[in-house]
Design a protein around this nucleic acid. Structure first.
Lengths: 228, 228
DNA sequence: TGGCGAAAATTGACTAAATCACTTGCTCAA
DNA sequence: TTGAGCAAGTGATTTAGTCAATTTTCGCCA
C-alpha cells in the first residue's frame, strides 16, 4: 500500500537525495559537489540541516568536506563493508576473535589468489613482502601483505572483509603489535606464501596461510593471556 | 612543526567526547544520554554543532535520536564490522562477488559452529530452519539460517562478517531473491547442515555448506548472467 | 479508588541570519 | 621565476529562536 515515500526524518531524505545526486551525476571519488549553500538551496533547507546529512555521509567516507575548499565524493561511496568508524576500544577477547576470524577466512582467500592473481597483483604482493623489511625510509606507500593478498583474489568484497578486519585491529593495537610480532618469522612465511601464489598452487597457498595465521594466533594468545 | 594537540576538527573531537562519555559511564544499548541542550552546554558548543556529531554517531547506530523522547545508546556501539549504511545500489557483478565471498568464508564457519555450538545455538538454528517454511504468519522474529549458523560459531567477529554480507545484499535484492531462490532445495540443505552441526561433525558441516553455497552461486549466476 | 483524557512540560527537529577560519588563485613586485 | 600578500570563495560555528513529537502530570469522571 503506502509506498512510504516519507521514509522518516528530513535528515534521512537528505542523505538519500545527496546519494541520488551522486548516482545520477555519475560522480566518483574525487569529484566535487556543490557548495553547502547551494545544496541547502537546492533541497530547500537551511545550512545546518544539509550539514547534518553531509556529516552522516562523511562518516562512511561517502563524501569528504575540506575546510575552505569544497565537498568531494570519497572512496567510501563504492564500499559495501567497513570497519565501524565510531569504534570503542577493543577488549582482549575481541583481538583474539579477530585473529581467529582471519584464520577461518584468509586461507581460502589465499587459494583464490593463487588461482586468480594477475601480474600486477604479483608485483604489489612482492612490494608488500619487502615493505616490512625496509621500514620507514621508503617514499612509496606501505603495503600490507594480507591486504594485497586479498586484493589478488580478484574479489572486491573479500578484500573489504580483510581490510575491515585489519583496520579494526590497527586502530589501536599498533604499539602492542610491534612488540609481540615475530617479524623475521612473518617475513619468511610471507615469502613462502608469495611463491605459492606466484606458482598458482592454490592448495599450497591455503596451507601456508593457515599455518602462518595459526602461528600468529599462538603468539597473540600467549602474549595476551599471561598479561591481563 | 606539528604540535598536534588538536586531533582535528571540532566535530571529530565531539564524536570522541561523546564516545568517551558512553565508555566512562559504562553505558550500553538502551541507556539514555543527556539532552541535546545539556550536551551542547557540557561540551561548550551550540546545538547545531553537537547535533552534527550526534548524526555521525547515529550513522553507525552508536546512538539513536528519538524525537520528543531523548537520545539513547544503540546496538552499533559494540560493533566492529558493518555493512555500509550509505550504500549505493549493487551491480550484478557485486552480487556475484557477494555469494563467492560467502562460498569462501561460510564453510569454515560451519565447521567452527559444529565444534562450538551450544544447545541454545541449536535451538535458534532449528527455528531458523523452520522460519523459511512458515513464512509470515509467525509472531516470532524471522531468523536467517546463515546468520544463526555464524552466531553458533561462537565468534562475534565472524558473525558480523556474515551479517554484513547478508545485509549488503538484502538491502535491495529482496524481490529478485524471492524469485530465483529454490526454497525447497534450500530447506533440505539447511536441514542437512543443521544435523551435521548438531552431531558435531565439523568436516561434514563444512562440505555440506560448501555444496549449498555452490548451488546458490549457480542459481544466481545463471539467473543474472543472461546479459554477460 | 481507578483510569481516562486533556493540558503542560520535556525534548528533538529545523529555521534564519550572521560571523569566523581556512583555501585557493591571482596579482605584483623582487 | 619566485615569493609575499591580498581577495574571493567555501566550510565551520555561533546565536536565537520556532515547530513538532513524546512523555508526564494531574484533574475529572465513573
Amino acid at each position: 500500500m503506502t509506498e512510504a515515500p516519507q521514509a522518516g526524518g528530513l535528515s534521512d531524505r537528505l542523505v538519500d537525495g545527496l546519494l541520488d545526486l551522486i548516482s545520477e551525476g555519475a560522480l566518483g571519488p574525487g569529484d566535487s559537489l556543490p557548495t553547502v549553500r547551494e545544496l541547502a538551496q537546492r533541497f530547500s533547507v537551511t545550512t545546518p540541516t544539509i550539514r547534518e546529512a553531509l556529516r552522516r555521509l562523511q562518516t562512511t567516507d561517502a563524501v569528504r568536506m575540506r575546510h575552505g575548499s569544497g565537498i568531494y565524493v570519497g572512496e567510501g561511496i563504492h564500499r559495501k563493508l567497513m570497519p565501524n568508524p565510531n569504534s570503542t576500544p577493543l577488549k582482549d577477547e575481541h583481538i583474539i576473535q579477530l585473529v581467529e576470524a582471519r584464520l577461518t577466512i584468509e586461507p581460502g582467500i589465499a587459494a583464490l589468489a593463487a588461482a586468480n592473481r594477475t601480474v600486477d597483483d604479483l608485483e604489489r604482493l612482492a612490494r608488500a613482502v619487502d615493505t616490512a623489511k625496509r621500514a620507514a625510509d621508503d617514499n612509496r606507500p606501505k603495503l600490507n601483505f594480507h591486504r594485497e593478498l586479498a586484493a589478488a583474489s580478484g574479489n572486491q568484497v573479500l578484500f573489504e572483509v580483510v581490510d575491515s578486519l585489519l583496520a579494526a585491529r590497527s586502530r589501536e593495537q599498533r604499539a602492542l603489535r610491534a612488540q609481540i610480532e615475530n617479524h623475521t618469522r612473518d617475513y619468511d612465511q610471507h615469502v613462502a606464501i608469495f611463491l605459492a601464489v606466484e606458482a598458482g598452487d592454490a592448495e599450497q597457498a591455503r596451507l601456508l596461510t593457515e599455518q602462518h595465521l595459526r602461528d600468529l594466533r599462538t603468539t597473540i594468545t600467549t602474549n595476551l593471556g599471561g598479561h591481563e
